[in-house]
Design a binder for these strands. Structure first.
Lengths: 227, 227
DNA sequence: CGGTATCCCCCGCGATACTG
DNA sequence: CAGTATCGCGGGGGATACCG
């Protein structure tokens, strides 16, 4: 591990940590606010527990995170250090580049579970009605167990549910994963898809009209793709 | 390779290309101006030919470089595309982070051959006397075959030699790899090391005085280390 | 929930030798 | 100079089962 590249160039030294499979995604989750093991896994669902733990240990060792038992002692927390927080700049440049130049989306990238997990951090509850709002998504092209999701939006938090939360749905969104992914990425305009029927809304007209204002989309959505 | 991570996040898509061993270093060399196979290898000496070729093919496939026979048809050239040039921003953020937060330099990082290769791109010939200037380096703590190097500086180019170029040396620099590496990285001030004898100069007083002005140091030398 | 422990396979990668 | 071909190993990492 030490001196993997035989150079003292800062890019080489950083590579020892960063240029490994999964690493950017784990760091992205941490910088998005995840602190717990399974929280990180929801953002990186395809990594194995073994490997995630290995990577977290490594990040701790090089000083990107610190590990801590939470107050109740019931669970472990992984917290970014200043070094870890400064990796946000790297995530930014990598994401910008990916948005502009990386390969096109393919079938196997379209994990609806990941999409809703990413969305739940980018829903602007302050733009919503006060109190509880239940948002339901139906991805009609997804396998049965990934077709339906609910967002339980309170005044200051958003929870993702894979079963009905037990409250009535206020606004339902019906779409394909493909179309919604492209909207999320900023490759198609949201309002236009609503008009053309690529995204269908069911619920009060007031909520339908407000909906595009709730959805902040991907952090990189405004970056113009070049290919 | 495709959909390695099962997400369409731009960071995940970029990771498929970037988050691999050696990749940042190869891209660094290309962005530093290398276009030929063995030129890249000089900047990444520990990579095997097999693997370098594999990586270059991959970079070509994803549109970061294009391959071309040069005019004479005698050799292959690897040229950055616009996508490849935009990776400079990524190199910048990764290098900045590495400079600030990556691990300290260790013995095995101290490859004098790599150091002189890195230096030759950062020597300001416009600050030198007109005509030819021969700069000689002696790293007294290096193994015999890595002790001596020459820079053959012309008005518009710098060549690295591992044997005497056959011209008299105008200025000789005697130092340890360790000390010079730290100066190069911006961890120690050059002028102070010259004063204290960590770096010794032999040659006309005029050249000795001018020397610190020739050496541009690492691109990241001005970034302040945090640990 | 937050991991370990184990098994095992594959392939990433280095080393060496050879080529046009 | 710019690779290719071949071999071989080590360990990266996936799958599964188990634990406090």
């Amino acid at each position: 591990m030490t001196s993997e590249f035989g150079q003292f160039c800062p890019i080489a030294l950083a590579s020892e940590v960063l240029a490994q499979k999964w690493m950017f995604l784990i760091i992205r989750e941490l910088n998005a606010g995840s602190t717990r093991f399974n929280e990180i896994r929801r953002g990186v669902p395809r990594i194995s527990a073994t490997l995630l733990k290995q990577r977290l240990d490594q990040l701790e060792q090089v000083g990107v995170i610190i590990r801590r038992r939470n107050e109740k002692g019931s669970s472990e927390e992984y917290l970014l250090t200043e070094a870890g927080r400064e990796l946000k700049a790297v995530l930014g440049s990598v994401g910008e580049w990916g948005q502009r130049w990386a390969r096109a989306i393919e079938k196997d990238d379209l994990d609806p579970g990941w999409l809703v997990w990413a969305m739940h951090r980018r829903i602007d509850v302050t733009a919503m009605p006060l109190g509880r709002t239940v948002l339901e998504f139906e991805f009609f092209d997804a396998p049965k167990d990934q077709r339906l999701f609910w967002f339980l939006c309170a005044n200051d938090s958003v929870d993702v549910c894979i079963k009905s939360p037990g409250f009535d749905t206020d606004l339902k969104v019906i779409t394909s994963v493909q179309v919604f992914a492209e909207v999320w990425r900023g490759l198609r305009p949201l309002r236009q898809e609503i008009k053309s029927g690529g995204i269908r809304l069911e619920g009060s007209l007031a909520l339908q009209r407000a909906f595009p204002g709730w959805l902040l989309l991907s952090v990189f959505a405004k970056t113009r793709r070049q290919v």
